[in-house]
Amino acid sequence: MIETSPVAASSPVASSSLETARRVLRVEAEALATMAADLPADFVPTVERVLALKGRVIMSGMGKSGHIARKIAATLASTGTPSFFVHPAEASHGDLGMVTPDDMCILLSNSGETPELGDMIAHCRRFSIPLVGISRNPASSLMTAANYRLTIPALPEACSIGMAPTTSTTLMLGLGDALAVALMETRKFKESHFRTFHPGGKLGARLTPVSQIMHGTDSIPLVGLDTPMAEAILEMTSRGFGVAGVRDGAGLLVGVISDGDLRRKMEGLLDHKAGEVCSRTPVTVTPDTLAADAIALMNDTKVGALFVCTDGRPTGILHLHDLLRIGVM
């Protein structure tokens, strides 16, 4: 195995590389700012047309533009706009059957003259499928055929030879993100919707509602205001959550007994009732509280368990270990 050593920060290679990196990022950032100041005229009509779609948004492009198109399709799909990528070469060999008159095609091509897109353009024209073109050349074949033209600024690529797709692909990706976010915000896309499309991994765990994690009514440690502390301690111990909820005569949660409360009232503890020992400011959540918000509340209040209440009545209990188990931390 060949071993490499870190390049010293003061070496010529390091100095040149850092300067190149800063220049590339500045060029691309300035290009994005230029486009943000003067968005394509068809941006809003494109958003409105997508919102009215009965079908899906079909993304396509060749080479680097294809990679960007694939990413935009994934972003759209995960934020409430049904979308998928069709490779233009595969489309010419049967995959055009995936594209229906209810759909919309968004085709990416820096030059606007990518020959592999020809069959997709012809298919859209033949079946009156709305076509959106994304290109830097407004006079190109793609943009001439398109119903909606999202022209990106014709700015220099960030590479030293001015040929490697850098600035152009960054602009395409930024425009795709802008389209996806505009659509999701117009649709009032919420965290709960996001969870539907991201059920796996840490993100999915953080967006899980408490109702899917909590222990139900049969597991809740509960006592009354007049319950002797000897019985309250047995209830805390048998349930294993380290706490007991205290209810009033109407079934409302009015207090919580924790290990800390036991220590503070240790002298003559067994001579007291639960209502005399409990803390009267219980920290609670509702069943639709997200796991991420529950863990934040636990951290802020320094508690290891939360009672889940509906209209003030306990319907479940959530322990820190439950959140750790699903990977929220």
Score class of each variant (00 low, 15 high):
residue 51 L to I: 15
residue 54 K to S: 13
residue 242 G to V: 11
residue 193 H to R: 10
residue 185 E to K: 12
residue 14 A to I: 08
residue 64 K to G: 14
residue 141 S to D: 13
residue 21 A to N: 03
residue 159 C to M: 07
residue 105 C to W: 02
residue 195 R to V: 11
residue 158 A to C: 06
residue 118 G to C: 02
residue 78 S to F: 06
residue 9 A to S: 10
residue 54 K to Q: 15
residue 86 V to N: 13
residue 278 C to S: 08
residue 278 C to W: 00
residue 306 L to S: 02
residue 174 G to W: 06
residue 10 S to R: 01
residue 98 M to Q: 09
residue 308 V to M: 02
residue 143 M to P: 13
residue 111 S to F: 00
residue 290 L to G: 04
residue 242 G to W: 05
residue 199 P to H: 09
residue 28 E to G: 09
residue 138 P to S: 12
residue 232 A to W: 06
residue 146 A to W: 03
residue 133 G to D: 08
residue 140 S to M: 00
residue 248 D to A: 11
residue 160 S to Q: 11
residue 40 P to T: 12
residue 76 L to M: 02
residue 96 L to T: 11
residue 10 S to L: 03
residue 310 T to R: 15
residue 66 G to K: 06
residue 230 A to K: 15
residue 107 L to I: 14
residue 304 G to C: 03
residue 165 P to D: 03
residue 257 I to C: 07
residue 320 L to Q: 10
residue 166 T to H: 05
residue 234 L to A: 15
residue 90 E to Q: 14
residue 59 M to H: 04
residue 127 F to Q: 04
residue 84 F to W: 08
residue 72 I to T: 07
residue 130 P to Y: 03
residue 284 T to F: 02
residue 312 G to F: 09
residue 276 E to N: 04
residue 100 T to C: 06
residue 277 V to W: 07
residue 284 T to G: 01
residue 17 S to D: 04
residue 128 S to G: 03
residue 5 S to N: 13
residue 235 E to A: 13
